[in-house]
Amino acid sequence: MDFASILAIEILGSIAILVLISIGLAVVFGMMKVINMAHGEFIMLGGYVTIFGTTHAGLNIWFCILVLSPLIVGLVGLVLEWLVVRHLYGRMIDTMLATWGLSLAIVGLMTMLVGNTTTGISTPLPSVAIGKFSTSGHVFFLIALATFVIIALACLFKFTTFGLTARATTQDANMVANLGGNPRRIYAVTFGLGAALAGLGGGALAPIIGVIPTIGITYIAKAFITVISGGATVIAGNLAATSLFGTINQLFTYWYTPIIGEVALLVCAVILIRLLPQGITGRFFKGTI
């Protein structure tokens, strides 16, 4: 029983991590049809902001994770949108390549600035014991944060004027412009929001991973696969894909090794895309957000 609950918590944690690393990408892809290859680097930057904020500036770790990381990375996202992404809307493949260039450049820049070494901070929460097993307290924080992010995004898209305009822009940008909206600003804010969510994810993961300039690569493949399998519907698609892949990843990790877990995730995704080319939400959960 203790063991079953530990395994359940680990699976929920695995899903929460997938949500945190992929939700920013899902927002940008679902709302703007832009695949941001620099997403992994935004996660990396978020991790560095939290680490340097706590170790160098001596700030409170929760403040760094929840406020500083999303804020700074969100600003970086806005600047890059203004410099690069803005000029390529409607050209999906060119956007992808240009952001890949940005990804390489950001990795190179951070390597020049902080060096190619791993840095980390210790987890702020003590480990939690269940019966004779124990698990990291940080997992509970990640699960809570992922839940909060999903609910907050759902509220944002469902109940605010920005959310309404953003969803309308996804359907027909010209009509929004005709009705007096500003699709360009919506796109800019959405890209910034995606970057901020990546920053939040990076900050939240910083205590349990070693951050290195090339860390983005570790997350980018999983984040892409999750988003594409989820389909165009941001929140329902992301939840469905993360639940499926998180469970598979964690179960295979438990039965074999973490690497087999990743391979199982990929194989599952390739078969899923063969069966459902439009992603999970292309067939199920239609009409949700």
Binding site: V84, H87, L88, D94, L97, A98, W100, G101, L102, S103, L104, A105, I106, V107, G108, L109, T111, M112
Partner: peptide
């Protein structure tokens, strides 16, 4: 001084743009 990946990344972005 200058990281190779940094230069290649900038080259890629500029060419695409």
């Amino acid at each position: 001084v200058v990281n190779v990946g940094f230069v290649l990344g900038i080259v890629l972005t500029i060419f695409v743009l």
